[in-house]
Design a protein around this nucleic acid. Structure first.
Length: 255
DNA sequence: ATGGTTGCACAGCAA
């Protein structure tokens, strides 16, 4: 089973690219973040033509997540249990081929001094509680998406410049460690020890041309998933060409 | 340190 995550930064403005990549890569499961559309305006047809089922959890203008799958998606959950009805739409979970898929778009946090950073920390704590409450570390479970956190120095091109800012802040690392300590492993690190593997480059300051990147799009898995994982790849080329997302797809193969 | 770019939606926010 091929499982992919991609923050597409608007599925409607990026439709041709997203459909084109999906057609070539043919993931069994594709988790999208920042679809930036309400459910009724999600461009479903090109995906159903490719044979995908879809569970969408969108909103106007911002955020929004979706799971596309070549096999049916069951037991769908939208947002965290303690989220109010009008909370930003950042989480959708479902079961595909007996694997629990938890697709997240973690809050950006804006800056470590902002209220939004407090919200990011709280959201991550509630995500940890959600895992505890709804799953077991012995389950076949993947937690994947845009974490807006680069785990380690080797995941950041210029760690000394990023340290203490959002995406590479000690408090974020604590919050992420709380989540992984529940029983999750960074699947990419089973197969790749090296640095320089990034999934996001800012649109500004020619960040991609200078390779000022971060690995903030992660595929975490329970022990069973770690054992079944046969490879993880980052599709760096999707940052090139006409109107790319600022993120690229990350893909895990699960036997 | 600041401001750089993109999307949505048509000003200014979020990232």
């Amino acid at each position: 089973m091929i499982v992919a995550t991609w923050n597409v930064n608007s599925v409607r403005s990026r439709l041709e690219r997203v459909v084109g990549w999906t057609e070539r890569a043919r993931p069994d499961v594709l988790c999208l973040q920042e679809i930036k559309t309400t459910d009724d305006l999600f461009p479903l047809e090109p995906f159903t033509e490719l044979g995908y089922h879809a569970e969408i959890f969108g909103q106007k203008t911002y955020n929004g997540v979706a799971i596309l799958s070549q096999t049916p998606i069951t037991k769908v959950v939208r947002n965290l249990p303690d989220d109010p009805e009008d909370a930003p739409r950042r989480l959708i979970a479902g079961t595909v081929n007996k694997v629990r898929i938890v697709n997240v778009y973690v809050p950006n946090g804006q800056s470590p001094e902002s209220e939004k950073f407090v919200y990011k920390m709280d959201w991550l704590a509630r995500l940890r509680a959600f895992l505890e409450k709804t799953a077991k570390p012995s389950d076949p479970l993947l937690l994947l998406g845009d974490f807006n956190i680069a785990p380690e120095e080797r995941d950041v091109r210029y760690p000394d410049l990023w340290r203490g800012h959002i995406h590479f802040h000690p408090k974020e690392h604590e919050a992420l460690a709380r989540i992984t300590s529940w029983g999750l492993h960074d699947l990419l690190r089973k197969h790749h020890e090296e640095g320089g593997l990034y999934s996001w480059w800012d649109y500004r300051q020619l960040a991609f041309q200078k390779n000022n990147g971060l690995r903030i799009d992660l595929i975490l898995g329970t022990r069973k998933m770690l054992d079944r994982c046969t490879g993880v790849e980052i599709f760096r080329d999707e940052r090139k060409g006409e109107s790319p997302s600022d993120h690229v797809p990350v893909v895990a193969a699960i036997k």
